[in-house]
Design a protein around this nucleic acid. Structure first.
Lengths: 166, 166
DNA sequence: CGACTAAGTTCAATCATTGAAGTAATGAAG
DNA sequence: CTTCATTACTTCAATGATTGAACTTAGTCG
């Protein structure tokens, strides 16, 4: 049957997954983040079926995550680029890579890519940071609380589970 | 047809998506991170079809992300808990929430949950941090380079696209 | 002309997802 | 002691998304 929609769930995670939460989309976005732009390159690098790639790109364009840009007129050819909204998915991509590396999701035993500070060469990881001071905070000090758009059910849920921030 | 496997892709992101990259799994993990444990609670909170939830939980247990724990004998009842491997997905969950909030993926206009420092009450966000110093580094200073498990194709790809770290 | 490239579309087969309904084990209520 | 309620599923047929293979389109190159 038709996949059920996550619309109306009042949850940003559900909202995000509604847009990018299928088997292929984040793999395509990974490649776009790496700088791939052309249809055939995306296809060759991910081994995604042609029809599936076309459907995903169309969907991503419709939702402002990717834009289609004409790069030559004769013959007419378009390429695909991430919009700011799409580029902003880099944290999701990094988080997935870190998890995959730590738990050896590939089965190859060693990470094939590392992220380092261009200036110092030292490794970088995602961490929770105080927005005011820029200082990293240990995850167990994180706490979830209702935001401005919280409904009653969310508030109740968080009351019952205070501090289940991770 | 049968979904194509991402196994053998030598990419941690593909490896991660192979395990958790479908429409429902991360939504279930979100709830487990929030502290939900029982089958019926997961079902009620996500509105996931019963058969789909059962299939996902089975898959997650098989891959060591969730464990099934007997919580009473009469009648025999099991609940589901995240393993350390599963709990370690919190960054993915936070990254999706941040993206969904920033781009209003729900359409409700305001985030329903905020993450704050339990001690100072100030907002927390994910950021890249130097593993040695704990200092946050701006994303444009990040650079990807081949890791110990990199094959020739990965090295070549990164040579061509140096600095496409995001 | 004929081969080639880039970016798709079309198609039938097959598989996963879905809603509805049913099952199993037990305790509680009348 | 019979029926209802709870929890955690399983089974089923219908539907439609995903797939590989083949085809199309619009042009360039020699």
């Amino acid at each position: 049957m038709k996949p059920k929609s996550f619309a109306g769930m009042r949850c940003s995670i559900a909202g995000a997954l509604e847009l990018i939460g299928d088997r292929w989309t984040l793999l395509v976005i990974r490649d776009l983040l790496l700088g791939f732009r052309r249809y055939d390159d995306l296809r060759a690098n991910t081994d995604i079926p042609a029809a599936t790639l076309a459907a995903r790109l169309k969907h991503l364009v419709e939702h402002g995550i990717v834009e289609r840009v004409r790069y030559q007129e004769h013959p007419p050819r378009d390429e695909y680029r991430l919009t700011p909204k799409g580029r902003d998915l880099w944290k999701v991509s990094v988080a997935l890579r870190e998890w995959g590396d730590r738990w050896d999701a590939t089965g190859f035993g060693a990470p094939s890519i590392e992220m380092v500070d261009r200036e110092t060469g030292r490794p970088l990881v995602l961490a929770l940071v105080d927005t005011e001071t820029g200082v990293a905070i240990p995850p167990d000090r994180a706490q979830l609380r209702p935001g401005p758009g919280a409904g009653d059910s969310t508030s109740r849920l968080l009351d019952e589970r205070t501090g289940a921030g991770r």
